[in-house]
Design a protein around this nucleic acid. Structure first.
Length: 857
RNA sequence: GCGGGCGUGGCGGAACGGUAGACGCAGCGGACUUAAAAUCCGCUUUCUGCAAGGAAGUGAGGGUUCGAUUCCCUCCGCCCGCACCA
């Protein structure tokens, strides 16, 4: 029968309006129903959505619609991570106010997201730059202060000279600012810190409970937190003349077993002792400047040469009377870890060995493979590092000789503890979270600096501290600092003139609790307890793996801090995490190396040329879509050409969701053809009046129920690409049945209905349109997910392979419940088996019911 | 350097230790059409054979097993994370 083509341009906005008018996706707490909270990482309003957003939000939407059909009360909200530097950059570059720029972008991107037909509860929309949102952030910060989770300290910070701001360690990548790409310098500033390290152990151990997180992400967080068990102890110090000093030098080590191999001590250039001594030591002062200049720059990435400056002090070996170790300031010792001081054991640490060779210090091996003669065990250019499973013993180590490494560690720890100069200590790589930023477009830090009272939190009644709108961006640095009046306030405590904090929060704070705010976006408290208790935690969180450490670790910390201050009652915010792959695309460039938009590249006679200039083009690699390489495809264009359903379908087809997906024109056209194919099949099925041969009907019903079973399982497990393959199979089966004309109207309609309902999470507009074409009552969006009939899912005839010595030689179709003995007799009688045996006697027959029969001969 | 992951047709990819290559894309052939588009049907791992069939085949090599893409070991290649953390 002839049917008009399905026209998404007309149908999609119509259904979007229907869902909005019917408030289909507005969520309300309902204790009687099981809840399901699905959340995708909210976007930064950069201007327009890109294909990565399309993929991310489509996945979340499929889950939301699928869970809804399964009867869950689904919460699926959306908002904007709206503070951040690009808004200020736009202000600086183009003179647009950050607020105007941000809200314009939000309007554009909201329209784009709506055109995708997402099942979102827009009534819960939040923007982090809205005072209605950030006032709660400020209130909670003050609560955190009271709970001892906030600290102000002078610290060495990473200064981004382009953005004029401080970066967290995590925002420094290869010595460069994560956004500006500028080489980062070191500076000292008074900063606000959130004490995430108070939860180091907890954040680490709780990872074990996150069984529905990717193993990879858990491992990355584990390494980031970096727990190590070691010993902290102190050396007695003496001067060059051997006179004992009052001061002792405290070091941290995990290799206390190698204490007898120690040949020097080294402290960080930023160590308090080094600072003090540099006052009277010009050489040391110069050395400290050199180290600071190197900072986190490229040279250190390329493993700068180990360098030190002798302090003229000596550490007395704790177990070797008369032996003393020279103390250096060294460029490879980090102030931020342990005590900022170490003892060097060159034989068993490559850094220490490099250092010892340069300064001609002794190299004494103290650990060697069992059975090695200590007299002949020497160290060359490489330190001897233990590998797991090595069978080693201590040598050259006095009372430790002959012990294993763990036994030696235990003995040394015991002796230090007995002496009272050392203790076992667990250390973490994780540092406290510096949250101060010298920027305008962020949440103001709600404190006041008073000459008389010191730091005074802004009283609750005076919150929010809102950003002034009248700012200028004509000079570098923080506009809040330059503002004529904003920072001048009276001290809430003494009433005298005081100064507002002009720093704003790291935007990672904004995104560390938005998931909780979505539970009650209009509540007067940061979080409504009842709402959060009902909705939290997030049942399925979806986003890019680039947030594996920062955002996810901060959010885990925030959930705990909020719980500690009574705002929440959970620990882990995200029960299940899924990290989706990127969208990649072919690249094209001209002979002169300029990138060309794929839309401008045309294939002519087997080669690629520029559509307008005709210039020959080179095909580059398939890479992540990026504006700089111009290999981008605009979602608006795709939706205008094919409709949202096609774009959504393509994003889920073929490639597993965790892998990178390549956007191809051919693939998009394939998805488009399939939307039309479903439309035709459904229309044919709706008017079907074919025969009703029982076997044909049963075959189609089986195919439909099997597909339903498989798609249900695949969608539950987020295997979208497999679910789609199953839907194709059912479409093929239905097409075959329609062409044969023997299946009967009821089975055909059932198959068509399943086809529509199963594809609805991916192609919701088309599904509604098909539902109407089939004259079904109501709407797909309100229709429960069908249940497969187990009797139809299981075949009663099975085809099993017949193997001889593990090689497939034949196949037989038998009743599913045929007894093994009967099957054995059957396969032994096959000609193909007799031939393959070549006269050998049968030794054994292995029968796996329903799968295989293997004859061993 | 340390840690993790991945290698399957021309391409994206399927495959509870049990018939490798489902499904899609591309390609080839055919039907419909004045023609094209659209659509529908068929073929499509390689080698060999007229065919029935046979042989090889999941990065390479070995092992466990009646049977290995799947489990174990060694190596090669690619990707990602951390990177002086004592």
């Amino acid at each position: 029968m002839s049917t008009e083509r399905y026209n998404p341009r007309e149908a999609e906005p119509r259904w979007q309006k229907h869902w909005t008018d019917a408030r289909s996706f507005e969520a309300r707490e309902d204790p009687a129903r099981p809840k399901y909270y699905v959340l995708e990482m909210f976007p930064y309003p950069s201007g327009r959505i890109h294909m990565g957003h399309v993929r991310n939000y489509t996945m979340g939407d499929v889950i939301a619609r699928f869970r809804r059909a399964l009867g869950y009360n689904v919460l699926h909200p959306m908002g904007w991570d709206a503070f951040g530097m690009p808004a200020e950059n736009a202000a600086i570059d183009r003179g647009i106010h950050p607020k105007a720029w941000t809200y314009d972008n939000i309007a554009t991107m909201k329209r784009q997201l709506q055109s995708m037909g997402l099942a979102l509860d827009w009534s819960r929309e939040i923007a982090t730059c809205d005072p209605g949102y950030y006032q709660h952030e400020q209130a909670m910060f003050i609560d955190f202060m009271k709970a001892g989770l906030v600290e102000r300290k002078v610290s060495m910070v990473n200064w981004d000279p382009v953005d004029h701001t401080v970066l967290a360690n995590e925002q420094v990548i290869d010595g460069r600012g994560w956004r500006s790409g500028a080489l980062v310098e070191k500076r000292e500033l008074a900063q606000w810190f959130l004490k995430i390290t108070a939860y180091s152990d907890e954040l680490l151990s709780a990872l074990d409970g996150l069984t529905r997180w990717p193993e990879k992400v858990r491992l990355m967080q584990k390494n980031w937190i970096g727990r190590s068990e070691g010993l902290r102890f102190s050396f007695a110090l003496e001067d060059a003349a051997g006179k004992l000093l009052d001061e002792r030098l405290t070091v941290y080590t995990t290799r206390h077993d190698t204490i007898f191999g120690a040949s020097f001590c080294a402290i960080s250039a930023d160590h308090e002792l080094a600072r003090r001594l540099s006052a009277d030591d010009a050489g040391l002062a110069a050395f400290r400047r050199d180290v600071a200049a190197l900072g986190t720059s490229e040279e250190s990435i390329e493993r700068a040469e180990k360098k030190g400056h002798a302090l003229g002090l000596f550490a007395r070996h704790p177990f070797r009377p008369g032996v003393r170790l020279p103390v250096y300031a060294a460029n490879f010792v980090l102030m931020g870890y342990g005590e900022g001081a170490i003892f060097g054991c060159p034989a068993h640490d490559q850094r220490d060995l490099d250092f010892a060779r340069k300064y001609d210090l002794p190299v004494i091996p103290v650990v060697a493979p069992k059975g090695t003669d200590p007299a002949h065990f020497t160290i060359g250019a490489e330190a001897f590092l233990e590998k797991e499973g090595d069978n080693t013993v201590l040598i050259n180590s006095d009372f430790l000789d002959g012990m294993s490494v763990p036994a030696a560690k235990a003995e040394i720890a015991r002796r230090f503890e007995a002496l009272g100069t050392g203790e076992r200590k667990v250390n973490f790589r994780l540092r406290d979270w510096g949250v101060s930023r010298q920027r305008y477009w962020g949440c103001p830090i709600p404190v006041i600096h008073c000459a008389a009272c010191g730091i005074v939190p802004v009283p609750a009644a005076q919150l929010p501290v809102t950003l002034p709108d009248d700012v200028t961006f004509d000079k570098p640095g923080n506009p809040l600092e330059h503002h004529p009046t904003w920072k001048h306030v009276d001290c809430p405590s003494c009433g005298k003139a005081a100064r507002r904090e002009t720093d704003t929060f790291d935007t990672f704070i904004d995104s560390s609790w938005y998931y909780a705010r979505f539970c009650s976006p209009h509540a007067s408290a940061p979080v409504d307890k009842a709402a959060a208790t009902y909705w939290m935690g997030v049942d399925q969180y979806i986003g890019g793996v680039e947030h594996a450490i920062l955002h996810l670790l901060y959010s885990r910390f925030y959930a705990r801090a909020m719980t500690a201050t009574g705002h929440l009652a959970i620990k882990e915010p995200f029960e299940s995490l899924f990290t989706q792959g990127m969208v990649i695309h072919e690249t094209f460039r001209t002979q002169s190396g300029e990138w060309v938009f794929p839309a401008d590249a045309v294939n002519r006679d087997g080669g690629w040329v520029h559509a307008r200039t005709g210039e020959a083009l080179e095909v580059g690699g398939v890479e992540k879509m990026s504006k700089s390489k111009k290999n981008v495809v605009d979602p608006d264009d795709i939706i205008a050409r094919f409709g949202a359903d096609t774009a959504r379908w393509f994003m889920l087809s073929d490639t597993p969701p965790e892998r990178d997906i390549e956007w191809t024109e051919a693939g998009a056209e394939g998805a488009w053809r399939f939307t039309q194919r479903i439309w035709r099949l459904v229309n044919d099925a709706a008017g079907y009046s074919g025969g009703d041969a029982a076997d044909a009907a049963l075959e189609l019903r089986r195919a439909a129920h099997k597909a339903l079973q498989a798609v249900t399982e695949d969608l539950s497990a987020l295997r979208f690409n497999r679910a789609i393959a199953r839907i194709y199979e059912l479409a093929n089966a239905l097409g075959t049945a329609l062409a044969a004309g023997r299946a009967g109207a009821a089975p055909v309609r059932e198959a068509a209905e399943f086809l529509v309902l199963m594809s609805a999470p991916m192609m919701p507009h088309l599904a509604e349109e098909c539902w109407q074409a089939m004259k079904k009552r109501g709407y797909v969006v309100d229709t429960p997910w069908p249940k497969p009939d187990p009797a139809l899912v299981a075949d009663d005839q099975v085809t099993i392979a017949v193997q001889v010595n593990g090689k497939r030689r034949d196949e037989v179709t038998i009743a599913r419940d045929m007894p093994s003995a009967e099957l054995e007799a059957l396969v032994l009688g096959l000609d193909s088996v007799t031939r393959a045996l070549e006269g050998r006697p049968v030794k054994k027959v292995i029968v796996v019911p329903g799968r295989i029969a293997n004859i061993v001969g």
